[in-house]
């Protein structure tokens, strides 16, 4: 799949060291629902699990210009009856933060979710201390659906978990607008 700035491809087992490094970076893991160290074998196992399943997908995001892998996006816990999936995105290469690459990769992933998989709804949860993620999601057309109060313990304090969701008709309408 192609965005304007990024390209998405399916994850390979050989991507494990890349994901493993991102998952263990303190600044990046703050955005993830992980606390204990992530091992290379659990990363490999996760890649095997998601590539062997039709209930989730993980894309490696690369810079279209340089081909360098810069992060990943994922749709997981796909529910084929409610036609929904949970969305996740990490831009692991920090040089690409706040430059539109995340939004571009997120839009390409949403397009896959709605127009290739035929899903009806995509949702996610993020943390109140992570405004960059919230901004990316709002730029893609996600709507804030709720706040789970004090549901994440991080750096010695409880923080809120922000719930966001987007429906197919909202995505279609949103994409018609200029960026």
């Amino acid at each position: 799949m192609e965005g304007v700035l990024t390209r998405l491809r399916g994850v390979e087992e050989s991507d494990a060291p890349l994901l493993h490094a991102w998952d263990n970076d303190p600044e990046i893991r703050a955005a993830l629902d992980v606390v204990f160290p992530v091992t290379i074998s659990s990363t490999t196992e996760y890649i095997r699990e998601i590539t062997g399943s039709r209930d989730g997908v993980l894309f490696i995001v690369s810079d279209r210009e340089t081909e360098a892998p810069i992060g990943f996006t994922t749709l997981y816990d796909i529910d084929w009856i409610a036609r929904k999936a949970e969305f996740g995105i990490i831009i692991g290469d920090k040089r690409y933060w706040s430059r539109g690459y995340g939004t571009d990769a997120a839009l390409a992933t949403l397009s896959f979710a709605f127009e290739d998989l035929g899903l009806h709804r995509v949702y996610l949860s993020t943390y109140s201390y992570h405004p960059r993620a919230i901004r990316v999601c709002e730029k893609c057309g996600f709507v804030r659906e709720g706040v789970m109060r004090k549901a994440r313990y991080h750096h010695g304090a409880y923080h809120d978990v922000v719930l966001m969701g987007i429906l197919y008709d909202e995505f279609a309408a949103h994409r018609g607008r200029p960026p």
């Binding site: 409610a82 949702y123 659906e145 709720g146 706040v147 789970m148 109060r149 549901a151 719930l163 969701g165």
Partner: peptide, 26 residues
């Protein structure tokens, strides 16, 4: 319990989508 959010069209049942209400108590 306090109502904390509404996940729109989160559940399909009896021919229609329904919302899921999230509630929490501290």
């Amino acid at each position: 319990f306090v109502r904390e959010g509404v996940q729109r069209d989160d559940y399909y049942c009896d021919g229609a989508y329904h919302d899921t209400v999230i509630m929490g108590i501290l």
